[in-house]
Every structure is written in structure tokens, then in C-alpha cells.
Design a protein around this nucleic acid. Sequence first.
RNA 1: CGGGAUGUGGCUCAGCUUGGUAGAGCGUCUGGUUCGGGACCAGAAGGUCGCAGGUUCAAAUCCUGUCAUCCCGACCA
Length: 566
Amino acid sequence: MRYSELFCPTLREIPSEAEIISHQLLLRAGFIRKATAGVYTYMPLANRVLRKIMNIIREEMDRAGAQELLMPIVQPREIWEESGRWAVYGDEMFRLKDRHNREFALGPTHEELITSLVNADVHSYRDLPLMLYQIQNKYRDEIRPRFGLMRGREFIMKDLYSFDADYEGLDISYNKMYEAYRRVFERLNLKYRVVEADSGAIGGNESHEFVVLADTGESEIVYCDNCDYAANVEKAACVVEKQDISEPMRDIEKVATPGQKTIEEVSAFLGISKDKHVKTLMYEADGEIIAVVIRGDRELNEAKLKNFLNCAQLFMAEENKVRKLCGATFGSLGPVGLECKVYVDLEVANMRNFVCGANEDDFHLVNVNLGRDFVPEAVADLRNAVKGDKCPICGNSLDVLRGIEVGHIFKLGTKYSEAMNATFLDQNGKEKPFIMGCYGIGVSRTMAAAVEQNHDEDGIIWPIPIAPYHVIIVPVNMKNDKLRTAAEDIYNTLIEAGIETILDDRDERAGVKFKDADLIGIPVRITIGPKSLQENRVEIKKRWEKESELVELTGVLEKVREILKG
RNA sequence: CGGGAUGUGGCUCAGCUUGGUAGAGCGUCUGGUUCGGGACCAGAAGGUCGCAGGUUCAAAUCCUGUCAUCCCGACCA
């Protein structure tokens, strides 16, 4: 490709709408342009990157025994009614009507469609297992599209669905996908972690997320360096250290804490450390107000609470309702004497003589003890895991990382097949629902994640397997015939050798070309300058290294091949 | 949907408080000088100041409404 013909408008300045680095760089480097919030055009270079990511995914899905198909984006309302999700999916689904006023959705996902498809054409256990996938645009009318490609309303996803005759079969399909996903992310050359995930409302019993590590990521994961344990914070089980609770219970005491609201304030005011405090959070769970008690310096994990209560709706109670029930506002609540059900985090069950609100504004209780001063409805693991917690597998200290969720695999079981009455006949001629799994990779998000993980102050540094081009040739002055001819010669040699190469034939100053080459992140740069060319040599620089090296003209192809091999 | 902020040439932003001829830098085009890390000189094009209404002799500026975008929260690949 000649740069002079390449459609790649680069920007010197950071567009003000972009907050995170991948968004900024993809815009600046001319990879993406916004059409409207959360909807982007993939420019030619981005398109090449996406195709490479897709091809790696395809190869691994095919290797695992899956088949690619392509389903429609426009889906009729009826199949969503069958699964019950027309109502449940809510505003996140793009909906439209045709001229006859029939309703449709733009597919946010394809469980419904594929289930009805497979149900129509697969009737026997002999046809199972079956794994089908597609790579296609998905549509989700996110409340808040964010961070460029990270959370788009239109995005590219690989979605695969497995159909098995029994749960043993599902385990096999699931494991095949697990391995295939590992291979995909290995091949993409991304640093990632597989974490146990909360399968939440989907109801499956197993789920893993594939998380590309990046400080700007939205998911938080805890992991153990000693064993293989890793889980997202939603899921990570908190193990309670056996604490010494031989400390004698002291007499409960009510103390005035005028104006002190937050744990920090009360802790400082009373001179009692934060880990001797508990906080009481009021929630509304399916309409019932409940109290949740956790250690003062911890965070409540709403997913755990929701799972534990097995409720459909959970949100923080409104302050006026709380005041009516407890007689105090948020900063002064405590579990003692509360009229509602009280749920207590495991950790609190091991605390003695702690501090909590007195349910009276400007007063707290000290030396409160569970059992003596209040009796909880239940004790459960309800908080977020934090750095330093014990690994639930080996007991080692856990660490925390941030990352971007790029893949997620679920065991669905019969959720959709039962709802949609999708069945096959087993060996005994009995009708049974398909046992399903679903497996997604955010393709466009993976591209953004790759940038998030691979960049420096000058621009993107594409991992070789997904780089839009592998080599960029920069003659420092196009008006110099010798440089130009040498550049053309090398360009032809590389192209003939099948190496994806850009020749920067623009009549620009060298500085401009270097800046652009760095910005768009081509892995190998060949600089052709007058002094080195005099000695029949050119400079070859790897994008991720500072220094370049001089290579004989005759050795360029070999050198490039060597670098690209890794 | 709640909270916050912003809309002025392609990009980044100034001007708005105190109403009076619409600005700068970058980019683009032309000519020239330059030519190894975003050059310089000269010239040029390009804006109904998001949109609609209102106040006023006069609105980018004040008021009302509306739309869009971005950030923070709940959702997720």
C-alpha cells in the first residue's frame, strides 16, 4: 500500500470527546470515526485489524469443531416473546416496526434465533453435539455508550452456541470452547486472565470471563499468584480468617457523635480504627426493605446479595423510607433494634465490640456484639473481595488487577430450549430439551483492548498477529531519486515476498512520516536515509524498541522475516 | 434514567461576566524556500456561533425550550 493512496486521516490533537487512551489513539490514528454515540465507522486500517482478529477466532472455532453461519440482525418479536425476553430485555433492545406495523428487534444476541433454528432442523440425538457460530454486528441500546469501542451500541461480536444431548456433553463442549478461547487470546498476543464469573440471572452453573489486563479496564479481578485461582470481584468468594473472638464482650454504650456521618469521620472522632466499625446499608429487595451489615472499610457486593436473596430487583432504599423505618438518616444507621430483616457479612460475625450507628441522628453505639445486641436473619458472604484477602483455594494472599472483559462463556443448560420448547429425541425416543451453552467474544472491543494494552506516548504498538500492516518504509526525502528508487525496490521485494507493507511515498518531511508511523503503530519501520544508503544499508526499527539497527540492503527481507516471526 | 459539564470553520480552543464588524493555533489549497522526529515565508478558501423561540434599535454573548455530545452511577462482549 502506498501511503499517498491510503485513507488514514491522522489527527495532531486529541479529540475532546475521547477519554481513554484506546479511544484517543484509534481516533487520532485514523482507525475509527464516530457516526453517532456508540456507533463507529471502521476505517481501512481498523478493518484490517478486525479481519485479522476475526480470522484467528475463525480458525480456532473451526478447529474446535464449530461451524460458521450467518444469522439475520433483524429478528421478529415473536421469538423474543417465546423466550420471555421481549419484555425483560427492556430499553436496551433496539426495536423497530415495518410498514405493516409488525415489530422487530435488532439482535442484541442470538439465543432465540438459533434456538428456533436448531429446533426446526435438528430432531435427533444423532445430530448432536452441534456448535454454530457467527461473527456479526450486535445492537444494544446501552444506557451510556462509553469509551469509544469499549462500550458501543453497535459492536462486532463472535457468538457461538452449543447444543448437546446431556450435561456431560455440555461439559465437553464448554471445555472445548474454554481451550479454544485460550488459544485465541494467546494468538492475539494479549496479556489476559481467565476468571470465574458470576453467571447471575442467566442461571447457568458455570461461567468464565476472559479479561485482557489494562489499568483502564472496567472489570476488577482478584487473582492468586500461588495457584491458578482468579475471579472477578463480583464472583470472588471471601474467606474469613479465623479471628480471635475471645475478647470479652463489653457493655454496649451510646455515644454522641454530632455531625459525624461517614465511617472516616466517626472513626476519627471516636479514635477507633475503621475495621472496628460496621456500616449498615438499607436496600429494597423485591419491595421489602432490608438491612445489610458489613465492616466499615468494606464494599458491599450487590451481585452476591442479589444471588443470596434470590431476588429479581435490588436497589438502595430511598432515604425518606429509611428515615421512616429507622428514625435516622444514612450516616447514623445500625442493626440494633431494627424492625426489618438484617443480613450480616461473614466478616462481621467474627467481630467483637464494634461501632455502629444508633438509629438516632448524631449518635453511635460502641461495644456492639452480634447475638447479644441483635440477631441477624442470616450471615453470608456479601462483600467485595479486596487485595490481601485469602485465596479460597490455597490461602495465599490475593491480588487485584483491572481488565477489560473481551470474552465470556456460559453454560446455559435448558433456559432457552425449555422456554422455547426446543427438543430432540434421545436414544429411547424420549423428547428432551437441548442442553445449551453460549460463548461470546467482543471483536471490536478486543481491538480497543489491544490498543489499551499496547501503546506508548507516541501511539499504538500493534501486536504482530493483528497489525494492519507489518512494515512501513520511510524514505526520508522523496525528492532524492536514490532514496526513492531504493524505497521502491525494497517495497517491491517485500510485496513479492507476501509481506504486508506500506510505502510512505508522501512528499512530507521525515518528522511527519515518523510521527505517523509511530501513531498508527506499524511493527517494523524501515528508514531509508542518504548516509546509510551510501553504504548500501537501511535502518530497521521495531516499534517497541528505542534503537534502530543498520541492515545491508541485501539482508532486509531476511531481517524483516526474522522480526515478524517473533 | 438521575447527577455534572460542553456545543463557535476539518481538529484544539479563545470571545460570553459587562450585548455593538466572529478570532487564534493546527489542518486544507496556491507559490516559494526547506528536507532525519509534526519546518519557514507569502497568499487564499472555509463559520446562518447546535437548533427553535423570546428580550432588544442590536444577541455567539441575556432568557426559555429543545437536540446532541462527553464524564460519574446501575448494565454488559
